[in-house]
Nucleic acid binder design. Structure first.
Lengths: 363, 363
DNA sequence: CTGAAAGCGCTTACAG
DNA sequence: CTGAAAGCGCTTACAG
């Protein structure tokens, strides 16, 4: 049955008693085609179960109607276990693509040195969406290359002044600040930060800077011994907390640069007999689904993935259509659960586009 | 810069001083092309950053080198929140596609009445991979249509005798059986099953049948009052447990047909003051990442998503190449954590391809 | 081992 | 409003 030749626009033309050009025009909804002709063509299309051949149409029009989604993760991370945070992003991107009539090509691999350029250059996609929490230093070179080749792309990540191309991200600084302020309001003062805080991971760095600013605003010093590097996996968070404990410094709270890190740290804390939040407050960042289900439920910072996905797609399409588009920062929202104790006094920063903290009683 | 015309094989031919046909042959790695010619062509390709235009090549060869992944979920489920179980599947499918040199088109939507046929018919993909936990009765009609059109597809789901096309799934019956046996071994005898147990959800139904068989083998009756319908979401699991409580029947264990259902049920149990596992044992199915992190950690049944993804892709490619391929069932593996109490006596069914239970001490 | 030529199935000026 | 024709960039017999 798969032998059965697929019908072409010529078959439709024949059946409808018109020329092939008219069929094509009618199907593109374009220029004046008479109502009656249109009807006959639609009828023939249905009768033969005809579908426009995308390869032919793409070849002719020189665009593909598909977008490519690429992940850039550290090679150490397991390919088959992308960060849960990106799952919801994936969902909203898929939905946004569908709404705009675009298909989505997806790739998690970084096998190819040239992964990023391959899709648009070989005419598989009109543009790229870049996601991931990989090392920005190696990432950066690829972004420059992309730009040099004139490839259309948007990326999710830190939104900073000197970056190549279009970036969309959440306000990591503000999120880090709000979370630290909440921890301080719970009476914590020795707050450890678990996560890389360098140029290599700009998002974490921004969270760290917001965190440090809140501390300083409260008249506290930022103790470098309370910062431990970690990438965004449970294992790394677990290990970093072990490192922190070995340093022998005192601390009464832990701010994981991501939920995965925080959850790994939580496990280490429990293993060492610490109670969360009684002995140590704990918080994360991302608000992945798991955050609400761990015990105690994790206080964290939510990013609006739904809006993020839509904006990523919309801005990429603007780029493709040569319309003006610019980088933008989405507000971060504090989600207060049980892991920091209290849970009664939500920290709401007044004014602006800032959204109020959520107190999640289900946690 | 995006104005810059992309080089074609004619440009390469010109630069390398050969004909365009030779360029094409060399690039396809095909027939005899002299070493020297090949080298010159490669050089030109690099110099111009040339990439074969996929649309042209696909149009000519009549195949696309891409596979489409489609989700079929109940419309009630939130599009942007696909079942976490499928996330790891997505990872392994992506990886398998990459290994075979195929691209992956992805769609979660079910907007189009014809979603399933659209991809291969419009020459966007050579075949389809179908994933999802939607209502099988409405799904079934589409499978038949797919088959009638000669579309290549494989689906993840229950593997039963009378199904259209190729199916790959885990041994849900065995998984349900093993889990029930474990619950019985913990001294539980009034075990509720939360999940639809009908033709509408064949995977759940198989789990239920395995569960029921284990009960009967232990000389117990299967009480229909202990079965409550639910689809695979936390909300549905939560609600189903409320329904169960309202029935006023006694029970000492709950078997959620999926982890999401079990986690929703766990929340309801806790809200009503029941302790897990002291008062009620609880188990799920799927072993999603969250299962290890809820409190108490959830005993469940793991499916080998890594192998599943690889097999899905491999068998679809066999279909596409007209090679023999057949449906197959993967063994399910009991993962014992804390939510059923005990946690010491793993239930291992002797013989066969069956894999031993895992005792997860991290849980 | 290589070249000239046909053709994959569309879209879109061009002419009417 | 409609048709005849060129051409998108490849691949692949066919001929040498």
């Amino acid at each position: 049955m798969s032998q059965k030749r697929k019908p072409t626009s010529f078959d439709i033309a024949h059946l409808a008693g018109v020329s092939q050009s008219t069929v094509s025009r009618a199907l593109r909804g374009s220029s004046r085609v008479s109502k009656e002709t249109h009807r006959r063509i639609q009828e023939a299309v249905r009768a033969l179960n005809y579908k426009v051949d995308k390869n032919a149409s793409n070849l002719r029009t020189q665009h593909t109607g598909t977008l490519a989604l690429l992940f850039f993760e550290d090679p150490t991370a397991d390919d088959s276990n992308i960060n849960p945070f990106f799952h919801s992003m994936l969902g909203s991107i898929t939905r946004a693509c569908a709404q705009h009539g675009y298909d989505l090509l997806i790739s998690f691999q970084q096998l190819s040195q040239n992964w990023h350029a391959e899709y648009e250059d070989s005419k598989k996609a009109d543009g790229l969406i870049l996601l991931g929490y990989g090392d920005y230093v190696s990432y950066r070179a690829r972004l420059d290359q992309l730009l040099a080749l004139g490839t259309h792309f948007v990326r999710w990540g830190a939104v900073l002044p000197d970056q190549p191309g279009l970036s969309i991200g959440c306000d990591n600084y503000q999120g880090g600040h709000d979370l630290a302020a909440h921890l301080l309001a719970q009476g914590r003062s020795r707050i450890a930060f678990i996560g890389d805080a360098s140029q290599h991971y700009p998002e974490f760095f921004e969270r760290y800077r917001g965190f440090a600013a809140a501390l300083r605003a409260a008249g506290l010093e930022v103790d470098p011994l309370l910062q431990v590097d970690a990438i965004t996996t449970e294992a790394s968070g677990h290990q970093a907390l072990e490192t922190l404990l070995k340093r022998g410094v005192s601390f009464d709270a832990v701010f994981g640069a991501s939920d995965l890190i925080a959850i790994g740290a939580m496990r280490a804390l429990v293993e060492h007999g610490y109670r969360v939040p009684e002995d140590v407050s704990l918080a994360g960042f991302d608000d992945i689904p798991m955050a609400a289900n761990v015990h105690p439920a994790l206080t964290t910072v939510a990013q609006d993935t739904r809006r993020a996905g839509a904006l990523l797609v919309e801005n990429l399409l603007k780029l493709i259509r040569d319309e003006p588009a610019e980088s933008l920062k989405l507000p971060a929202r504090l989600v207060i659960r049980r892991s920091c104790g209290g849970g009664s006094s939500a920290q709401v920063r007044p004014g602006g586009e800032h959204q109020p903290a959520t107190i999640d009683v289900t946690g």
